[in-house]
Simulated assay, not measured.
Amino acid sequence: MSEIILHHYAGSPFAEKARMMLGFKGLAWQSVDIPPIMPKPDLTALTGGYRKTPVMQVGADIYCDTATIARQLDRIQPLPSLYPEGREAVAASAAQFADQVMFQHGVALNFQPHAVAERFGKAPENVMKAFLADRKKLFEGGSASPLHPAQALSQWPTLLGRLEQQLEDSGTFLLGEEPCIVDFAYYHPLWFVRSNKAVSSMLDPYPQVQAWLDAVAACGHGEPTDLDSAQAIEIARKSTPESLPESGFRDHNGIEVGQTVSVSAVDYGVDPVTGTLVYQDAEEIVVRREDDRAGELHVHFPRYGFRLSPEKQ
């Protein structure tokens, strides 16, 4: 199997989630630094249009969304597992909640004017304006709307109070003595808050949460080495997508392997990716596409939270 390549940038919360999962697995990986805003020509050459961060690449296989990345990491290295045996549904559902609800709150706190000013520091004003304009466009056409900071401030004690109470009884981590997907899903939006001095005091009333954040952070980021984005594209071009297993899955909308389809997120960042459906099961959708620079690629998406639509011929 080819080496793991993560396309990300330092300040992305979901990229931090992926980096922490790689650290949990103790894996070596190659790090491609991508722009935080569009355009991202080298990334979209690999994904076909998907623009969210991060994206994981293994040869000519491209994994979009941290839910798909997590399941692929468990295939690459089954132990320690991100999904505790016998608690898979609870873990996946709690992680989904954190990735949506807790993430919205972490972002809303960081997008208060004083928090934006702190995060951008001495960066030129045009850089900050470009970032904010990009994030506004990110939400266009999706089902999710940015959470208003006043609502996030109102609900913050509820979310953090629940975490604080559970951590008093659950052990070091949220589902016991070992970290799992739930810890990493809750960790990244709170890391985003903790990393901004303008809002980090929002964690002060919660000592159990702070101790848990330190315990999760101790997983580290694994063993990254830098890689240029052009090199990553060349690796994809010289690789062949991994063979796919047999699947008897039947889509309830009648969409079948071999059809031309589009896949897009439903919440935000809804840019569609078009290709030939080559695999689907209850968790994953895979489309084959061709790129002039990167060659033949298999692009992997989660089923949950994404729209699969047939393309008109």
Rank of each mutant, 00 (worst) to 15 (best):
R194A: 15
E177G: 15
L213H: 06
S200P: 00
Y279G: 09
F306K: 00
T172K: 13
F103N: 12
T68Q: 06
T68I: 07
H105T: 13
F139V: 00
Q210C: 15
P80N: 02
Q208P: 03
F97V: 11
L43M: 15
G248Q: 06
T53E: 06
Y187A: 03
G275T: 07
A150M: 01
A28D: 11
D204Q: 08
S143Y: 02
G48H: 04
K40R: 15
N253M: 06
P80F: 03
E290F: 11
D292A: 14
E242R: 08
V278A: 12
H188C: 08
T276C: 08
A198W: 01
H114D: 14
K122N: 14
A218G: 08
Q313P: 14
I69A: 01
R87H: 14
T274Q: 13
V127W: 09
A89K: 14
E283T: 10
A45K: 11
D228G: 14
V263R: 01
I62C: 08
A60L: 10
V107L: 15
R162D: 12
L138V: 04
I62L: 09
I37V: 15
L138I: 00
S200R: 14
P272C: 10
W191V: 10
R289T: 07
R237M: 04
E246W: 05
F131I: 01
W191G: 06
G121I: 06
Q280N: 04
I5R: 03
P13M: 03
L213C: 10
I181E: 02
A94E: 12
V193Q: 10
F120M: 08
P13T: 03
V90T: 14
G222Q: 07
Q72K: 12
G49C: 09
L82R: 10
G11W: 05
H188T: 09
E125Y: 07
T172R: 14
Y9Q: 01
G86H: 04
D251I: 02
L227K: 12
E242G: 03
G59C: 12
S229E: 15
Q57E: 15
T240W: 00
L203T: 05
A130M: 05
R250Y: 01
P124L: 13
H298E: 00
S12F: 02
L190G: 05
P179E: 05
M38I: 12
D134Q: 00
Y50V: 14
P205N: 08
E242F: 03
H105N: 13
L27M: 12
E85N: 11
S145D: 03
E140V: 06
H8D: 04
E88N: 11
E164S: 10
